[in-house]
């Protein structure tokens, strides 16, 4: 199935690009994202917990980025598996400048949702995904404005994430600057969103 959407970030394209590729930001802003582990350049393992009522579970997933064309586009391949089902997606993400202080992020995902969630929740996917994407980008916007703390990598800070580096969802604490790097983005959103959104993570 295809899911597409677009969202606006209140930052210039370069900052938006950095933020959406920053695992420390993502782990803090993706609904349900608990943990990211860099497994190499452009690839991550991650853990997302999502669900509602009876269909709830933790998804173990991978994310690989390719076709990076900074700062305008990238392609992301995602796989996630958990007790409620599987998610596989290829996401094209585009960044374009609306003005000096605003960026439009467009995303277009071709997703295969399998297992229980494939059969039970798929019809709600498109609308809920978009709502959850809105929530995610809202969080990113807050992070960009400094209102939301991002995660610091556990262990020694580094300029770019290295294999084995772990990011966990942060406790509320003042945050310094963004850790630069290549990471997940809207695709991860999709995993978080697809998994989480299906059942509309309630708080």
């Amino acid at each position: 199935m295809r899911i597409a959407g677009e969202n606006t970030l209140h930052a210039p394209v370069s900052r938006a690009w950095d933020a959406l590729l920053d695992p420390a930001v993502l782990v803090a802003t993706i609904p349900g994202c608990e943990r990211l582990v860099a497994t190499g350049a452009n690839s991550y393992d991650m853990t997302v917990t999502a669900g509602v009522a009876a269909i709830k579970g933790t998804y173990a997933g991978t994310c690989v980025l390719s076709d990076l064309s900074e700062p305008s586009s990238l392609v992301m391949k995602l796989d996630g598996t958990g007790a409620p089902g599987t998610i596989g997606a290829t996401v094209n993400v585009g960044f374009s400048s609306i003005d000096d202080a605003t960026t439009l992020v467009t995303w277009d995902a071709d997703a295969v949702v399998g297992g229980m969630i494939g059969g039970v929740g798929q019809r709600m996917l498109t609308s809920v995904s978009k709502r959850m994407a809105g929530e995610f980008f809202g969080n990113v916007d807050k992070a960009l404005s400094g209102a939301l703390p991002a995660a610091a990598p556990t262990g020694t800070p580094a300029e770019t994430p290295v294999a084995g580096q772990v990011f966990t969802a942060p406790a509320i604490s003042p945050r310094s600057d963004f850790v630069k790097g290549i990471a997940v983005g809207a695709g991860l959103v999709l995993l978080g969103v697809v998994a989480g959104s299906l059942f509309g993570r309630r708080r």
């Binding site: 295969v112 494939g118 059969g119 039970v120 019809r123």
Partner: peptide, 14 residues
């Protein structure tokens, strides 16, 4: 069925 072979209405809701 969707094109990937997932049965989308596998419940009495759908």
């Amino acid at each position: 069925y969707d094109e990937s072979g997932q049965l989308l209405n596998a419940s009495f809701m759908d």
